[in-house]
Amino acid sequence: MTGDRRYPEAASGPFEEPPLSFTDREDRKIEIRPYDGSTAAFEALVEMYTAFDPADRAQGIPPGKESRVRTWLEGILSEDCLNVIAWDGETVAGHSTLVPDGDDDYELAIFVLQAYQEAGIGTHLIESLLGYGATHGIHKVWLTVERWNHPAVSLYEKVGFETTGAESFELEMAIRLGETD
């Protein structure tokens, strides 16, 4: 994943910023907070990803075994990455992450646990991650998505991602984030 990636001309945003809370469409109170680096939060994420339905894996992530989930999480929860978590009490309902790719590009991924899908959590989660990213000076964010994954593609389009590459199995999409004060 190198080379000159295209980004939309127009900037998107501003987006809401974490922490925030809302009631989802199933009447659950969901709180979105940045990852605080605690062991409890790490273990709660491990729990979510080991419970993750293999049908919702994308391009090999999350990995299938707990040991590999831990190694993968250690990488994306490191200090140069930005992570936000959607909590239902002590349970992780969803997680979204920005991982640096070179100097000023970031790759985004978002995962919502099956029981929490289609409840409006993904929209808040991705918007709050983009808001959090913008306040950290991030302006260029990209992702890849399997082209048949229509719910995901619709979500990305709704927040401002545009398709920038459609040559291979996956679509590549990118967004430019506006300046914040």
């Binding site: 994943m1 992530i61 640096p100 790719d101 291979s168």
Partner: peptide, 11 residues
Amino acid sequence: TSPMGKISIDQ
């Protein structure tokens, strides 16, 4: 493999 760990298949 992308920075995120996503696998993609080359052309």
